[in-house]
């Protein structure tokens, strides 16, 4: 029985990845269900179009991995949810709080590159 475990795991991972790929094709907003009571509508984010426009090839430019506070250059984390690492409330020296992480990832990059939305309502669109 033991030998089956990696196989099942591999199948499961493959299925999940496929689902994730499918999901990112369809992705229109950043889900905000990890927040207990989100104050704004979820942020508009069309994954593929964004990355194409922004010229982002590497997944880990956003889906980063930090270990002991250091960015790990060749690993990425698209198999995880942001909230797996970023809790809603930041604890001490740990990773930034989830909202700060989102804003840091999106808005800071937009500011640095002089492109993309930076005002609250440009991402958190009502409708």
């Amino acid at each position: 029985m033991k030998s089956f475990v990696p196989v099942w795991l591999a199948i499961a991972l493959a299925l999940l990845s496929a689902a994730a790929l499918k999901a990112q094709e369809d992705m229109r907003t950043v889900p905000n269900d990890a927040f207990v009571s989100p104050q704004r509508p979820p942020s508009v984010f069309v994954h593929d179009a964004h990355n194409e426009a922004a010229g982002i090839d590497e997944c880990n430019q956003c889906h980063h991995v930090y270990r002991d506070g250091e960015l790990v250059a060749d690993e990425s984390s698209e198999d995880q949810r942001c909230s797996d690492c970023h809790a809603e409330e930041a604890a001490g020296d740990g990773p930034p709080a989830l909202m700060d992480a989102f804003h840091g990832n999106c808005k800071q990059c937009h500011l640095e590159n002089g492109k993309g939305p930076v005002m609250c309502g440009e991402c958190h669109q009502r409708q």
Partner: peptide
Amino acid sequence: YHQFFAYRWML
């Protein structure tokens, strides 16, 4: 906040 119109200019 309610994004009634001209959001960017309003902000």
